[in-house]
Design a protein around this nucleic acid. Sequence first.
DNA 1: GAATAAAAAGACCTTATGGTCTTGTAACCC
DNA 2: GGGTTACAAGACCATAAGGTCTTTTTATTC
Lengths: 153, 153
Amino acid sequence: MFNKETEYALRGLVYIKLQNLNERRPGVTEISKEIGAPHFFTAKILQKLVRAGFVESLKGKGGGFYFDISKPELPIRNLIASIEGEKSFTGCAFGLKQCDENQPCPMHERFAPIREAIRNLVDTETVQTLALKLQAKGTGKTALDLINKITAK
Amino acid sequence: MFNKETEYALRGLVYIKLQNLNERRPGVTEISKEIGAPHFFTAKILQKLVRAGFVESLKGKGGGFYFDISKPELPIRNLIASIEGEKSFTGCAFGLKQCDENQPCPMHERFAPIREAIRNLVDTETVQTLALKLQAKGTGKTALDLINKITAK
DNA sequence: GAATAAAAAGACCTTATGGTCTTGTAACCC
DNA sequence: GGGTTACAAGACCATAAGGTCTTTTTATTC
């Protein structure tokens, strides 16, 4: 579906938010382990996300990653678009540059509603809503156990 | 959406079928030009498709590519899966290995119907149905002009 | 202010994707 | 059967994606 960088970014940010809800500020080592991503690669991706302003970081002892709660929620569309580009939501399945109502490719009519549904999903789902969904399932267990259980190796 | 190889394969086969409907057997040079794909790369992809049994070829003068009409129609799912693998239709958007009703990722519930719609589309749409749709639009013009017009450089 | 803990930066490597080119080989036609 | 046409095969190259590692900087704590 998405490329690795996007997947790790998504899982990483949701994990950070989940921990933040628990008054914790996880570091790269913990994050990479829990989301099943390579350590250094995770670090590199998180650096980019900080530079992009999606998440904040604190160096030194007791440091780690966290969300600035004064900022608005982050729709996953913004995250995905910043890594893969907007065309991942708008591109034609047949690969045509010009494909719309006027010049439709042979798949256009059937594919348009699907793309619309995807756009709607990524517009309305945010890192925060995803973290809350995970937390909701976690009654009785620590958040860490939870995501650990559902995260692929 | 799909990678380049898949796009060229899709457009190439649909173009071949469209020409076959017109009693023609196009060659690599013509195909690559009309679908807007690099010449040699197109040749390589078509070779693979012939080896995979998706389409037939004839060498020598008057040769080219054509579909064996005694074979059943080719759902684009088979084509796409043979290039990108089945997981392009079944993979979890969150990137989890285990993601289903029992162990759902936080996007699962909303993403499942979308994936189902995609599967339905690629299962029922075939190279033949796509070619016919193109032809239907082409009353009054040659098929070649038509696809030429809608194919991106 | 020294020790320590953690992120930032960037060099570097590996593999996959996308693309080019040359040579071989089969079919057809005169 | 020789010339021509067109696919087959495979070597080769460029770029991007994915991943690793070392060094530097910043912050905290004692």
